[in-house]
């Protein structure tokens, strides 16, 4: 059990640390990095609703001056978009496996 807790803390720390040191510039940079990923996901017809929600939350937080939240949410949006892009790429080949024969 202990190693799992340690791994979870290790995974959570970088995001928390990066969000903790967030500035207006760093939050804006994260949002700017996320947006193109979302555009790619949309162009592949595989945008996820939590991705859009996370980016919206990031932009709202940025407007309110909550740069830590803005940065964390933008990072989440980017990661989710990357996962959806990977899903869309994989499904281009894998969808045939679901066809009844």
């Amino acid at each position: 059990m202990k190693p799992i807790v340690a791994i979870l803390i290790a995974l959570a720390l970088p995001a928390a640390a990066s969000a903790a040191g967030a500035t207006k510039a760093s939050a804006a940079r994260e949002i700017a990095l996320a947006k193109p990923k979302l555009r790619v996901a949309a162009s592949m017809n595989d945008q996820w609703t939590p991705t859009v929600a996370a980016l919206k939350q990031a932009e709202t937080a940025e407007r309110k001056g909550d740069f830590a939240t803005a940065q964390a949410k933008a990072m989440r949006a980017r990661k989710l978009a990357e996962l959806s892009i990977a899903q869309a790429m994989q499904q281009k080949k894998l969808w045939v496996n679901e066809v009844p024969r």
């Binding site: 595989d46 996962l83 499904q91 969808w95 679901e98 066809v99």
Partner: peptide, 20 residues
């Protein structure tokens, strides 16, 4: 056909996952 069998969304479901 490709749309029907392609998994999508955060839950990774295709139309076929439920209806086939």
């Amino acid at each position: 056909k490709q749309y029907f069998y392609s998994r999508r969304g955060q839950l990774n479901f295709s139309c076929a996952s439920c209806h086939v």
